[in-house]
Design a protein around this nucleic acid. Structure first.
Length: 461
DNA sequence: CTAGGGTTAG
């Protein structure tokens, strides 16, 4: 209850007046602390509890899960098993949420196996969590297997599957599912429509997207909100209809937010529109002066047109505002262990082999006709250095490691914290062909499935 | 009277 209202002080006050808090009160307090961001305090209280039942364990695991400290959530889960605590549905759901967040497919599969082995009934909630986990790990085949096997489905279940399909580039399938959902008389809500509109966007169905958008209010009585406006701007932007996107923003009945201008800015990057890109960036910075993503996108637009003056002015502004680019980080899961790579990272124990593989990649890609896209390197450096800088992007390191360490033909799965850069996207397409390897990259907000030299995003992301 | 505390879709 206190967690919901985010009143840690009030909760703490009430709690401190209890003469002898029992398991229930302590569990509630663990939840309240975790829910208000005080996860470490929650953990201290949890560790000091004289008895901990499964609900208490779950409160703590959910606490970690909700603030994105997913690794700790999984660690606590394994500790829970070591101590022989009975694992219930809620805990499994929290653990699946953590796996989804990390993109940890192997761990998620293990949990699914655990469910089957222990004959835990797949309820609507649990099934939905499984679908979400597989979707966010880029395994839509398994996500849909779970979906179709479920007897009872609610709006969360449908929305989750639709979101997964849209996120993984299967826009048409997403919309088919929506039609089926309507046939089954499940009422869509505002979250469902985010997936519907994203589905239209990735499928390039502009008019249909516009129809669905209008139907929200007309047929379902759902008022479109920021996210929906953002989707339509993305829809127009992806189709290259930048004027329509601008007109749409100008006609918004609510004040355009960072996401609205961000969608426009991204379209400007793809369609190389400097003037509009500068305008969108100004709008974003008016709302959020330290938005590093906007600076990086604008810099990319300048660099793409070899406008080095523009590039260095962006660098100056960033310095003046005290903004720095979030460092890129790519993660690859291998044998249940997560390997992290940062830009130019030489700290991996198998670094020597990785370096050799990077050399081989470079040679074989060049033979296949790959030319480094040096345009998007953030700052103006010499051409040769640039090519070198690109080689060290975190996803290339992770892919090189995957090629070395994973068995022949095993899909390489990468999770990245930022957007994929143009050069890495290009290079990965080549790698998928030259090395005959499927590569799945989850970036900040979507998936790229690379196969035979092509990507599921159709080169728009 | 013996509950109450934990979980899913953007």
């Amino acid at each position: 209850m206190y967690a919901e209202f985010a009143l840690p002080d009030a909760a703490r006050r009430v709690y401190s007046e209890l003469c002898c808090p029992d398991v229930v009160a302590q569990t509630a307090m663990v939840g309240a602390l975790a829910g208000s961001g005080e996860v470490n305090l929650a953990r201290d209280l949890f560790d000091g509890m004289p008895q901990r039942d499964p609900i208490a364990w779950n409160a703590m695991i959910a606490g970690y899960s909700q603030v994105g400290r997913s690794k700790e959530a999984l660690e606590l889960f394994s500790l829970m098993q070591v101590e022989g605590v009975r694992v219930g549905e809620a805990t499994i759901v929290s653990v699946l949420t953590a796996c989804a967040h990390l993109g940890a497919l192997a761990q998620g599969k293990w949990v699914h196996g655990y469910i089957q082995k222990n004959k835990i009934r797949i309820t609507v909630t649990l099934g939905t969590a499984l679908i979400d986990m597989y979707s966010k790990c880029g395994d839509m085949r398994r996500a849909m297997e779970v979906f179709w096997s479920m007897g009872e489905k609610n709006v969360y279940t449908w929305s989750s599957a639709m979101s997964g399909l849209a996120m993984n580039g299967a826009g048409k399938e997403c919309l088919e599912l929506f039609e089926l959902m309507k046939q089954e008389h499940v009422q869509p809500n505002w979250v469902t429509f985010i997936s519907v509109l994203r589905g239209c966007s990735v499928a390039g169905l502009v008019d249909k997207g516009r129809e669905y958008f209008d139907s929200m209010r007309d047929e379902y009585g759902i008022e479109p909100w920021y996210e929906h406006y953002g989707c339509i701007i993305d829809l127009y932007g992806r189709a290259g209809r930048l004027d329509d996107a601008v007109n749409f923003i100008n006609a918004m009945p609510i004040k355009p937010h960072v996401g609205a201008w961000g969608a426009l800015l991204n379209a400007c990057r793809i369609y190389k529109n400097i003037k509009l890109g500068e305008f969108a960036t100004r709008k974003i910075l008016e709302l959020e002066s330290k938005n590093d993503g906007a600076y990086v996108l604008l810099s990319n637009i300048y660099a793409d047109s070899r406008n080095w003056k523009g590039v260095s002015s962006v660098r100056e502004s960033m310095k003046a505002e005290g903004v720095s680019k979030e460092p890129g980080c790519s993660v690859i899961e291998l044998g249940g262990k997560v390997h992290e790579f940062f830009v130019g990272d030489r700290s991996h124990p198998r670094y020597k082999e990785i370096e050799l593989m990077l050399g081989e990649m470079s040679r074989r890609l060049r033979l296949a006709g790959y030319v480094a896209r040096t345009n998007e390197v953030l700052f103006d450096i010499e051409e040769e250095e640039k090519e070198d800088a690109l080689c060290w992007h975190s996803e290339k390191l992770a892919i090189a490691f995957g090629l070395i360490a994973l068995g022949e033909g095993v899909t390489i799965r990468i999770v990245k914290n930022l957007r994929v850069c143009l050069d890495c996207h290009d290079a990965t397409k080549f790698i998928s062909k030259v090395f005959e390897r499927e590569i799945v990259v989850r970036d900040r907000n979507r998936f790229h499935h690379f196969k035979d030299g092509a990507c599921s995003c159709m080169d728009y992301w």
